[in-house]
Amino acid sequence: MKGRLGRALVLALPWSWMALFFVVPFVIVLTIAFAEPSEGLPPYTPLWRWTEEGGPIIQLNLANFRLFLEDPFYLEAGLRSLRVAAVSATLCLLVGYPMALAIARAPERWRTLLLMLVILPFWTSFLLRITAWIGILQDQGWLNGALLALGVIQEPLQLLYTDIALYLGVTYCYLPFMVLPLYATLSKLDPALLEAAEDLGARPSRAFLQVTLPLSMPGVVAGFLLVFIPAVGEFVIPELLGGPDAQLVGRVLWMEFFQNRDWPLASALAVVLLLLLVAPIAIFQARAAREAA
């Protein structure tokens, strides 16, 4: 077929773009992670310089990585990030699964509207939606105001700048990412399977556990990963809703970069964050590739 060359030309544009702006940047991050900070601009030392004889000298600086192992601050940030992401993804699953199931089982003509309602908040500003939660959770916020008015509490509760606020914020922002893949698998489920299970004597709860749930696992995994992976590196939500001690990897990276101007350390953090996420991202990509095949 004459298509060979044509194909290559067609593919060249997206291929080279993704290579240039996605793959190469990672290589650069990796090299700078081994550089030393400096006062210059850009604020790091080159990895190699030329000796007078013309040969290169490569200097690898491992201090950043040693620091991560020695300073418990970084280790804690990493563990905390994983925990926040896992808890939030689980909360998303608990809220999102019943929603996705209900939408999948709703009458056909309602489904598009309901799905749209799930996606609609996603189309409005993420930052402003976080802002709404500040209004809800702060000491003189709407929630404390309502609880005080109802007499449930006497003193305002400290809600903002706690882990609860953090979980709520992440769950709130990432919920659509959980509902959509779940809906995609659940809506493809043949309702006759469930009827068959019930016909064979399974109560609805057992039919759900033994038929619906196992068959929806691809959606559960996809949704979990779609929430978990970006949540591990989340910056905005911990910055605005979390307490000063909620030092997650993304926030630490931001701080090292923008406040301490330590580009090598920030790069090293990015490398570590990526290593933390290698397994989940690999699973996600393998699934994406399989679906595309």
Binding site: P14, M18, A19, L20, F21, F22, V23, V24, P25, F26, I28, V29, I32, L225, L226, I229, P230, V232, G233, E234, F235, V249, G250, L253, W254, F257, W263, A266, S267, A270, L273, L274, L277, I281, F284, Q285, A288, A289, A292
Partner: peptide, 22 residues
């Protein structure tokens, strides 16, 4: 396929930092 799918989930701080350094 991997390169196309990765930005969907990549934490933004990594994407941002790597692009800046690029």
């Amino acid at each position: 396929a991997g390169a196309m799918a990765a930005p969907l989930v990549m934490p933004e701080v990594i994407t941002g930092l790597s692009l800046l350094l690029m």
